[in-house]
Computed example of a mutant assay.
Amino acid sequence: MYPGYCSDTGSIAPERCLFGVMLTISAFLGVVTMFVRYKQVEALIPLEVTIRRWNKTGLALGMISCFGLCIVANFQKTVFIYVHVLGGILSFGFGALYISIQTILSYKMQPHIHGKQIFWIRLVVLLWCWFSAASMFFSTVVLHSEIHGVEVLKKLHWDPQEKGFTAHIICTVSEWSLAFSFVTFFFTYIRDFQNICIHVQVQLQEPDPHTSWPDSETRHEKSLLLAGSL
């Protein structure tokens, strides 16, 4: 259950315009980071079938999470409430699963590939993530049970004296805490990414002799999306 209180200040113009732009950029950066991490693990342990499966599953979950973030950015809670909630569930739910899988990969890759220290750091962040998610869920349940006949998800202004205010604050803090746990987890990639080199490789090929091109000098370009060296 996703209340969307982080989105309160991004529900009206012009704040929602900036909110949408920033979250869309964040989603793009998240996709790039997850893809680089995927290629890194693939290059480090290319023959381990189990790790390769975990790695592919993690990438898929990460992409879904970033897609959910785009939905949150472009469908405001006061306009498309159910679509916005769906985006939040995809973003936070699948994002937490992505962090879980990457922590498992760190455990399986230690001590030869990953040090034990980085695994324990990621495990702590993972526990932080799930604790925040659980706190947000239960506080949302309490909030909805305390307030009846009010569209809580569309409520933007709260009075400290009104019923449900405490649960609202706990839920909001938990949601921000969950978001910061995601950012912190990405920070743990910094040292890993310092050990790899990424470049785009372009190969020029001769045209197919059976294909008629108006210009005989035409060349086909084939770009490898990512070529990494460790």
Rank of each mutant, 00 (worst) to 15 (best):
S212Q: 14
V72S: 01
H220K: 13
S145C: 15
K116W: 14
T166I: 14
I51T: 08
E221W: 11
E42M: 06
G115K: 05
C171E: 07
N55S: 06
K39F: 04
S212E: 15
S174T: 04
S91C: 10
L29W: 10
Y189T: 11
V49D: 14
G62Q: 09
L225Y: 14
V32T: 07
I99M: 08
S106K: 11
L127N: 13
E151L: 12
Y107E: 06
V32N: 05
P46C: 09
F180Y: 12
L18K: 00
S65H: 02
S91V: 01
V183W: 03
Q201K: 11
F186C: 02
A133C: 08
L123M: 11
V36H: 02
S7G: 06
H112E: 13
P214C: 12
I169N: 08
I170W: 09
F138A: 05
L69F: 01
F182C: 03
A179E: 05
C129M: 05
Y98F: 13
G93P: 03
T33W: 00
L61I: 10
E48L: 07
Y5C: 04
F180C: 02
F67C: 05
R37Q: 13
I169D: 09
G4Y: 07
G115N: 07
A43T: 08
F131I: 13
L178F: 03
V200E: 14
Y82I: 07
I190F: 14
Y189H: 13
C129S: 09
W120C: 11
L86G: 09
T57C: 05
Q194P: 00
P214K: 12
Y5I: 03
K39S: 06
Q194H: 07
H84G: 04
K77Q: 00
S132H: 13
I51K: 11
Q102G: 08
Q203R: 13
R37A: 09
H199A: 15
S135D: 11
F28W: 11
S181Q: 04
Y5K: 00
V36W: 14
P209E: 11
Y98M: 10
M34P: 00
F193Q: 14
I89G: 01
F186V: 01
V36E: 00
K39N: 02
M22C: 06
A43G: 00
K155C: 06
V31E: 08
S135C: 11
S7V: 01
W213G: 10
T140V: 12
F138C: 11
L69G: 00
I121R: 07
T33N: 07
S212L: 15
S181I: 08
V83D: 03
S181A: 08
S229D: 04
I81K: 08
Q194W: 15
L156P: 04
A60G: 10
F35R: 02
V41G: 04
W213S: 13
I51P: 07
G20D: 07
T78C: 04
L204S: 09
W213E: 11
S106L: 02
E206I: 01
G30T: 06
I101G: 04
E206A: 10
L123V: 10
V41I: 12
